[in-house]
Amino acid sequence: MNILIAPNAFKNSLDAQSVAEAIALGLQQSRLDCQCQLFPVADGGDGTGSLIIKHLNGTFINTPAHDALGRPIAAAFGLIDGGRTAVIEMADASGIRLLKTTELNPMLANTFGTGELIKAALDKGVTKIIIGMGGSATVDGGMGILHALGIEFLDGDGKSLKPIAAELINIAAINTSNLDKRIPGCEIIVLCDVDNKLLGPEGAAAVFGPQKGAAPAAVTMLDAMLARFAAITLQQTGRDMTTIKHSGTAGGAAAGLYAFLNAKLVSGANHFLELTDFNRMLQNCDIVITGEGSIDEQTLQGKAPAAVAAAAKKKGIKVIGVAGKVPAAHSEALNQVFDQLLSINSDPVDLATALKNTRNNLIITAQKIGDQLALS
C-alpha cells in the first residue's frame, strides 16, 4: 500500500517534517505492508517558507536584520526559480518565537525586520517575492515593513513617526515618494493562513492581539489605531484595506502590503500545494494521512489539512486526519472532507502534557492506523 503522509506542523510542539517522520515510523512498526512518501505541508503559518524552499530545492541566503523589538539578529530568506523568486518567512525576522513571553508587546513590536528581508531580496535582483506571514509578534498593519522600504508616516505637524503600532493613531499623512523604486517591478504574493479582515471583533487586533501579548484595553486601542491607518490609507490611495479578505493576517501586515505594495493576498494552503506541485505526489497513492495540532470546522477555512484532503478527494483517494484535538460531536462538514478523524490523545490531558507527548502519541496512533488498514 502506498501512503502519502502530508501533515502540517503541530503548533508549539513539532514542525511538519517531524510530524511526518513520526507518522511514518508508526506505520513501519505496524502490521501493514506499506511504502510511505513524506510531503510536509503548510498554509502560510510559521515554517511555510522553509518548506517551500526545501521542496523546490532552493537556496538559503543569510542576511542581517532586526527582530520585532529592533534588536540585531541573523536572519535568512530563500531563492527559488533560478534566483528569480525570493521566499521570505516573516517569523524569521518579526516572529513571536524570537521573543521571550515577558517581552511580548504589540504596541512596541514592529515588522521592520521583514522589510529588511524584502530589501535584501530585491538586492539579489528578484522579480517576485513570496511571503509566509504566520507567527508574527506584531499588530502594526505592516507599518514597519513599509518604513523599511522608504515609506514615511507623518503626524499632524509633518514630523516623522516611529514605525511602531503605538504611533498608528497619530498618522495624519503617508509619504510614499521615497518608496523603493524596485517595488513596482516586483510581484509580491502574501500567503495567508487566516481569512480574517483587518478590523472588528474578528479582526487583527481582537483575534490575534491577545496571542501577542495585548491586554483587553490594548486590543481596543490597536483596533482603533488600525482603523486610523486604514482611513488615512483610503484617503490617500483609494484602497480600502478593511474590506479585503485575509487583510487581518499577521496583525494587519497583509493589509498594509496590499494597499502600498500592490501585494496579492492568497490562500496560503492552496498556493503552497500549487507551487510545490502537490498533485504529482498523489499519483499512485492509495491513502493520504494529514493533520495538525487541532482539526475542527475552522480547519475548513483555508488550513493545510483541509486543502490536502480536498486535493486527494478530487482523485478519489481516502483521507485520514490526525490531530491533538478533534471535535467530540459529529460534524457533517468535516466528514465530507475527511474519511476518518483521529485524536492522538487517547485520554483527556492538559495541554502541556499533550504537547510534550506529541511525537510518541503520533507514533502510537500511526501504528494503530497501520494495523487497522492491514485488516481491511
Rank of each mutant, 00 (worst) to 15 (best):
A311V: 06
I289M: 07
Q37N: 14
S94N: 06
V19H: 05
G142N: 08
M143Q: 09
E292G: 00
Q35A: 15
V87H: 03
K245C: 14
F260P: 00
H246T: 06
G238K: 12
L117D: 08
F10S: 03
A109G: 11
I364T: 05
T365Q: 00
L168N: 06
E187R: 09
D223E: 03
L351D: 15
A224Q: 13
A74L: 11
N345T: 09
D157S: 12
G156A: 06
A6Y: 00
H147K: 14
G200M: 06
I61D: 04
I295P: 03
T358A: 07
G26R: 05
L334N: 12
L334T: 03
K245Y: 04
Q37M: 15
A215W: 02
S267E: 03
A224R: 12
A312D: 09
V87D: 02
T176N: 06
E332V: 15
D81K: 05
L226T: 07
K313W: 00
H55W: 06
E152A: 14
A204L: 10
K197T: 08
C285V: 14
P64E: 05
I232T: 11
M1A: 08
L341K: 01
M143H: 10
R228M: 04
V319T: 03
M221G: 13
G251T: 03
G291Y: 01
E297S: 13
L117Y: 02
L56I: 02
F112M: 12
A206W: 04
F260W: 11
A109Q: 11
A254W: 12
N360L: 09
L355W: 04
G26N: 09
M143R: 06
L161P: 03
A366S: 02
E116T: 09
A307C: 08
E152C: 07
P210T: 10
M1R: 00
S30R: 02
R239E: 10
L161R: 01
E21P: 02
N57T: 11
L25C: 15
G293V: 08
P216I: 14
F260I: 05
G321P: 05
K325G: 04
K128H: 04
I3N: 00
A20G: 08
T127Q: 08
K315M: 13
M1G: 09
I151M: 04
T63L: 09
E292L: 02
